[in-house]
Write a protein that binds this DNA or RNA. Structure first.
Lengths: 151, 151
DNA sequence: TATATTTGTAACAGCATTGGTCACAGAGAC
DNA sequence: GTCTCTGTGACCAATGCTGTTACAAATATA
């Protein structure tokens, strides 16, 4: 289904990396936990690397590790790193510019969509990878540890 | 692109209907303003009708009109009416239940996604079709009229 | 009643995206 | 030098979205 699962996988991967600490993880190993193909993992790791969230090393004894502290990586950054597309799409073809509604509806909608984007950013910015890891470690305390706020 | 434009079109359509008042509009006419095929419009109108937002009548002199006051229709309802799918998708195949992260990551993610959903609902619930129509009528006052709050 | 009009819906095609897979070049450890 | 691992390109199947044609059912109007 064309709704991407990249965000879910990316959070999963980063949580594994945070869990591993300094030890670099191989795409093969990660793919095992996520239950998919190593190439799929490498593609996502590549996007995360471009966003400066992880660093990889090729060669034997290579692998990937976090480029920053887990507490410094918000889900907002993760989302932006792996989801290029906007949530909402505008009209496929431009509305009739002669119609009083059609001539301006896109501008009005765009403002709405920006507001939604901001709200999403705010919510995603509340949680860090460290927060997720804490929820994973202590499921019962999940509701609490999820509040690892920053800014 | 599998990101649907249905929400944008639905808001456009409902704004036209609000604009028209009691006069029923035909899918042909609406399609002209939206710049698409009448069947596409009818499909969306059908979803809106199922949600109780509009009523249609077949036959000559038929068409569609709002089933409720424009001030009583929030964008939240519009979104729910035409977008069946969740914004985020979970893992395609279930993560490894043996892995400490894999075994619980979906539950942790689900909580995040619910939070985002709620934030989106809140933002969308702020604006009504009447608010949109007002923004269309008075573009300069858009920022103000958009604040047609309810709840 | 007969006709014209309009919705509701099925069916199909074209296109884009996603994820899984293979293949292979390049980097790096030993 | 060899082995291992990442980065990446290419391809495929599955899926979803939209545009289009076609047609039955409903309804106003003559």
């Amino acid at each position: 289904m064309p709704t991407s699962s990249r965000f879910a996988v990316a959070v999963h991967v980063l949580t594994l990396l945070a869990w591993a600490g300094d030890e670099p993880l191989k795409s093969d190993y990660i793919a095992g936990s996520v239950n998919t193909n190593p190439v799929v993992i490498r593609r996502i790791l590549c996007a995360l690397a471009r966003a400066g969230l992880v660093t990889s090393q090729t060669g034997a004894a290579g692998g990937t590790r976090l480029a920053r502290t887990a507490s410094d990586i918000t889900l907002r950054e993760v989302y932006r790193a792996v989801e290029p597309r906007e949530i909402f799409a505008m009209h496929r073809s431009p509305p009739d510019p002669e119609c009083p509604v059609g001539m301006i509806i896109e501008k009005v909608l765009h403002r709405q969509l920006t507001e939604i984007d901001n709200a999403m950013d705010e919510v995603l910015g509340r949680t860090t990878i460290e927060g997720v890891m804490r929820s994973v470690k202590q499921p019962s305390r999940a509701a609490k540890s999820r509040r690892t706020t920053r800014a």
